[in-house]
Structure formats: structure tokens, C-alpha cells
């Protein structure tokens, strides 16, 4: 098992390096676009040259990457093109906001998935199963930005229960903070729950056909205890790995929903970077989101290895 964990940890480093290269290339895919974007299309050639020299953009891409990566490792993401402010502290300030939103949305998704998925799996091929499976497909097909718009219309404008957007730090006012996070985390979580409900259902159906379930049933255990104490625990292990992948998808959705709800997190920083044509900001925000995804995948893989080494060995 220790060998498996070590291998997984060792492959993490090249993964991060290649991922950062892909991002760097994606942002700089059109040569000279950074300066043109920052200065506008009417910039004189001299101005472009000066700008590129000032920011080191006239050097080969490889050297630019190495320099950027070397600094990024130490949390230094360079200076913003727009206002010459260091990007690193801005990212650090926004990170907890995004983590809170993604975490709460993930709780919504996992909560829905475990309860509804287990219910559907238990009533396999009966009415509750058919209903829940349809609902899961429905949830998975709703565009999250449209759901957010509908939720704002219903709960904020029509009923007036919750704010339409904005963000209050939890250190300032915990209740206001949570109230503001309810709608975005529902909009984000419900969409992700679509796939997770199905996974939970399949996984529970598989476990329910195992011999130890029959043994438990023959002891005369109640259905509730059977699912909660015996079946669910075993069904959760495969569910865990898929939910980590889904978490990555969910973190991507932050880019849209932070914009809809005017939440100052990393996701809206990506859009700020794009709208202002501020490539250091864009690159830093994108890298941080990617790191959140990669680290979650790593942690879940390690956790899964510790819970059940057989599975990981079988997969490799």
C-alpha cells in the first residue's frame, strides 16, 4: 500500500507541471496577443515593443514559462498588466470565498446523491427508482446559469427570502454570509447531483446483491438499518472516486456562478482577467482552480487506497 501511495504522490508532480504548461500555452497560443490585448488594436508598433520588453514577452515562450513557473511555485504570480498590482495576494484573498462556495455546493450535490441515489437503488426498478432516475437526468441537464436566474427570480425577487447576490465575509456576519451562499450553492450543486445520484444508485444495487446483505436480512434487521448500517457504507467507496471527478466539474462552474451572483472569488477573477485582457491575472486564477481540482483528485485517490487497496490495484 505504501508503494501505491508513493507512486501516486510521485506522479502528481509531473501532472501539475504538464497541466501548468497546457494552461500557459492555451493563454499564449496566439503570439503577441497579450500585448495587443492589453494595449488595444490601435497601439503603435513602438508601444507594443516597449510593452513586450517591459514584461519580458519578447523572449522565447519556453523561457517565459520557466520564469513564470519558478515564481508561481513560491506564490508569486507576477504583476497585473492593468494596474501593476501583485496578483498573488489578490488570489490569496479570493481563494477562501471560492472554496466555501464549492464546498457548500458539493455538500448539496453529495447530500442529494446519497439520499436519492440510495432510495432509488433500494427500490430498484420500482416506481421510486423510475421517478428518481428521471429527476437525476433532469438535474443533470439544467444549465446552471439558467437555474440560477430562475432561483433568483423565485426566491429573491418574488418571495424576497434571500439576497440576489453579493458576498459578506463570514468573519463579518456569518448569517448574512450563509444566506448569500444558499442560492449559488444550490444552483451549482443540483446540476452536479445528476450524475452522482446515478452512480450512488448503481453502486447500491451492486452491494445489495452481495451475500452479506442476505445474511443481515436473515437476521431480521429492518430495511432502514440494512441500508444505513450495511449497504450504504460499502456503496460509498466507488461513489467517493466519482464524486471527486464531479467536484472538478463543479469547481469549473464557479466561473459562471460567481459572475451571476457577483461573488468575488477566483472564478470571477478569471473573467476579470479576460475582460481586462490581463493575462497574468487570468493565468494565476486558472492555475489556482486547476490546482484545487488536481489536489482533490490526489486526496481522494489516497483516501481510496487507504480504505480499499484492492480497487486501486485493480484499476492500474
Amino acid at each position: 500500500m505504501i508503494r501505491l501511495i508513493l507512486i501516486r504522490l510521485l506522479t502528481f508532480v509531473p501532472t501539475v507541471i504538464v497541466a501548468s504548461m497546457v494552461l500557459f500555452v492555451a493563454v499564449n497560443v496566439v503570439p503577441g496577443s497579450a500585448s495587443k490585448a492589453a494595449l488595444g488594436i490601435y497601439a503603435t508598433p513602438q508601444a507594443v515593443k516597449r510593452f513586450e520588453h517591459q514584461h519580458g514577452l519578447d523572449r522565447p515562450l519556453v523561457i517565459q514559462y520557466v520564469e513564470w513557473a519558478g515564481k508561481a511555485v513560491r506564490g508569486n504570480f507576477g504583476m497585473s498588466f492593468q494596474n501593476a498590482v501583485a496578483v498573488g495576494p489578490e488570489v490569496k484573498k479570493r481563494l477562501p470565498v471560492t472554496l466555501q462556495l464549492a464546498g457548500m455546493a458539493f455538500l448539496v450535490a453529495v447530500g442529494l446523491a446519497i439520499s436519492l441515489g440510495a432510495l432509488a437503488g433500494f427500490y430498484h426498478q420500482r416506481l421510486p427508482d423510475v421517478c428518481i432516475t428521471s429527476i437525476a437526468t433532469l438535474f443533470g441537464s439544467v444549465p446552471n446559469f439558467w437555474l440560477a436566474t430562475l432561483l433568483i427570480y423565485l426566491f429573491s425577487l418574488h418571495l424576497g427570502w434571500l439576497p440576489t447576490g453579493g458576498y459578506v465575509p463570514y468573519s463579518e456576519d456569518l448569517v448574512a454570509n450563509l444566506r448569500g451562499m444558499i442560492l449559488p450553492s444550490i444552483a451549482l450543486g443540483v446540476v452536479s447531483s445528476g450524475l452522482l445520484i446515478r452512480i450512488m444508485r448503481t453502486s447500491l444495487i451492486e452491494v445489495m446483491s452481495a451475500h452479506f446483505i442476505e445474511t443481515a436480512q436473515s437476521k431480521g434487521i429492518s430495511n432502514f438499518n440494512l441500508v444505513i448500517r450495511h449497504a450504504l457504507r460499502n456503496a460509498l467507496i466507488p461513489f467517493l472516486t466519482v464524486s471527486a471527478v464531479e467536484f472538478g466539474f463543479l469547481v469549473g462552474g464557479v466561473v459562471i456562478l460567481e459572475d451571476v451572483f457577483r461573488i468575488p472569488g477566483i472564478g470571477s477573477l478569471v473573467l476579470v482577467g479576460i475582460i481586462n485582457r490581463d493575462y497574468p491575472v487570468l493565468l494565476a486564477a486558472a492555475m489556482v482552480i486547476t490546482m484545487i481540482v488536481l489536489v482533490t483528485n490526489l486526496l481522494v485517490d489516497l483516501l481510496a487506497t487507504m480504505i480499499d487497496p484492492r480497487q486501486v490495484r485493480a484499476r492500474n
Binding site: 504538464v18 497546457v22 493563454v27 496566439v30 478569471v270 479576460i274 487570468l282 482552480i289 486547476t290 481540482v293
Partner: peptide, 21 residues
């Protein structure tokens, strides 16, 4: 390489490509 591309959130990659293209 496919694994790494797969682990990017799709919308993030799309947004970045749109910004640079």
C-alpha cells in the same frame, strides 16, 4: 496527456481558449 486534459474543468479550458483565440 489525455488524462491531464481530462482533469481540467471543461468550462475553464473553454473560457481560456476563447480569451486567447
Amino acid at each position: 496527456l489525455m488524462d491531464i486534459l481530462f482533469s481540467f474543468p471543461a468550462i475553464l479550458l473553454a473560457v481560456i481558449l476563447m480569451a486567447s483565440l
